[in-house]
Computed example of a mutant assay.
Amino acid sequence: MDVKIARTAGFCWGVRRTVDKVMEVAGQADGPVVTLGPIIHNPQAVARFRDKGVGTVNAVGEVADGTTVVVRTHGAIRDELERAKARGLEVVDGTCPYVKYPQAIAQRLSEEGYHVVIVGDANHAEIKGVVSYSKGPCTVVKPGGEIPEIKARKVAVIAQTTCIGAEFERVVGALALRHREVRAVNTICNDTDERQADARALAREVDAVVVVGGKSSANTRHLAEICREIQPRTWHVETEAELDRAWFAGCKVVGLSAGASTPDWVVEGVAAWLRALP
C-alpha cells in the first residue's frame, strides 16, 4: 500500500519542547518528578514517561514535599501554580508559549473591562487555565454550540489554540451584531492552521485517511473531523493495533495525518502497518 504522510504529522514545536524539558528534568532532579496533569494528550507518550519514573498528578495537593512539578503543555490553573510556589515546590513551566498567549490576553483584556469570550472546550485543560487568568466575567462557547446572551457592552473574543478557524469567525460575527464593541484576538496556534490545511489537502488526494493520536486530544479529533468532511473513509486511531484491513479494501493510496501530541514512533508504527498491506 502506498502511504502519503502529511508534512506536519506528529509533534509540533511546542509539544517537542515540553517533552524534551520533562526528560531533561527527569535526568537531573535529585528527588521525584511529576507532571501536573498528563504532559500531553497521548497515552503512549505518558506511559513512556512513567517508565522513566515521571509520575502524573491532578492537583498540587497530591504532591509530596521535595518533588519537582512540571507544568504540562496545556498550562495549569493559576491558583494551582500559586499553591505550588507557596509550598516551596520546584516548578518547571512546560506550558507551550502559544498557550501562554491566550492566558496573557485573557488577563489583559479582562483588566481593561471586557467580558472575555473563549471559543473552546470548557473541560479542556488549556481552557481551564486560560479562564483562571481572566480577572472578570468570562464565558466559554463550545465550537458548534449555541452562543449565549451576554449582558456587556464590551466583549473580547479569543480561541482555544486548536480551535477551527471557521468556528472562531462564527462566534466573532454573531457577537459583532449584538454588542457595541467587540474585540477579536486570534489566539489559534499557527501550527494548528497549517496542520489543518495540510489535512484538507491530503484528504483530497487519497482513497482513505488515518489520523493518529490520543482520543482525548482536541487537535487530533479536529483533524479527523476535517478529513472526514472531504474523505468519508477516515479513521482516528491511537496505534496500529486498532487498524482493520477491511477498512482499506480497494484503496491504492492511504493518507496519514497525526495530532500535535503524537510521537514520531507511533506515527511510524501506523505507517509501517499500512505499507505492509498488499
Rank of each mutant, 00 (worst) to 15 (best):
residue 2 D to T: 15
residue 4 K to I: 14
residue 4 K to V: 15
residue 6 A to F: 01
residue 11 F to I: 03
residue 11 F to N: 07
residue 12 C to L: 03
residue 14 G to A: 09
residue 16 R to S: 13
residue 18 T to F: 05
residue 19 V to G: 03
residue 20 D to Q: 13
residue 20 D to S: 12
residue 21 K to G: 11
residue 23 M to Q: 15
residue 25 V to T: 07
residue 28 Q to I: 07
residue 28 Q to P: 02
residue 29 A to Y: 03
residue 30 D to G: 12
residue 32 P to I: 06
residue 38 P to A: 06
residue 47 A to E: 15
residue 50 R to E: 15
residue 55 G to E: 02
residue 61 G to C: 03
residue 70 V to P: 05
residue 76 A to Q: 09
residue 78 R to L: 11
residue 79 D to V: 10
residue 80 E to H: 10
residue 82 E to P: 07
residue 83 R to V: 14
residue 84 A to P: 07
residue 86 A to R: 12
residue 87 R to Y: 12
residue 88 G to N: 08
residue 94 G to Y: 05
residue 97 P to I: 12
residue 97 P to H: 06
residue 98 Y to K: 12
residue 101 Y to V: 10
residue 106 A to E: 09
residue 107 Q to W: 08
residue 111 E to M: 12
residue 112 E to K: 11
residue 112 E to C: 05
residue 113 G to F: 05
residue 113 G to R: 09
residue 113 G to V: 09
residue 118 I to E: 01
residue 118 I to S: 01
residue 120 G to K: 07
residue 126 E to F: 13
residue 127 I to Q: 08
residue 129 G to M: 12
residue 131 V to L: 10
residue 132 S to Y: 09
residue 136 G to I: 11
residue 141 V to F: 04
residue 142 K to Y: 15
residue 143 P to W: 11
residue 149 E to C: 02
residue 151 K to Y: 00
residue 153 R to M: 05
residue 157 V to L: 02
residue 158 I to A: 01
residue 158 I to M: 01
residue 159 A to H: 09
residue 167 E to L: 04
residue 170 R to Y: 10
residue 172 V to D: 08
residue 174 A to R: 15
residue 178 R to T: 05
residue 178 R to C: 09
residue 181 E to K: 12
residue 187 T to W: 05
residue 187 T to G: 02
residue 188 I to L: 07
residue 189 C to E: 11
residue 194 E to T: 15
residue 198 D to N: 15
residue 199 A to E: 13
residue 204 R to M: 14
residue 209 V to I: 13
residue 212 V to S: 04
residue 215 K to N: 08
residue 218 A to K: 08
residue 223 L to P: 04
residue 224 A to M: 03
residue 225 E to H: 10
residue 225 E to Q: 11
residue 229 E to L: 07
residue 231 Q to A: 11
residue 233 R to L: 14
residue 233 R to N: 14
residue 234 T to L: 11
residue 234 T to N: 09
residue 236 H to C: 07
residue 241 A to R: 14
residue 242 E to Y: 08
residue 244 D to Y: 00
residue 249 A to R: 13
residue 250 G to A: 07
residue 251 C to G: 03
residue 251 C to K: 06
residue 252 K to E: 15
residue 257 S to F: 00
residue 258 A to Y: 04
residue 260 A to W: 02
residue 261 S to Y: 00
residue 265 W to G: 02
residue 267 V to Q: 01
residue 271 A to M: 05
residue 271 A to G: 00
residue 273 W to S: 08
residue 273 W to V: 06
residue 278 P to M: 05
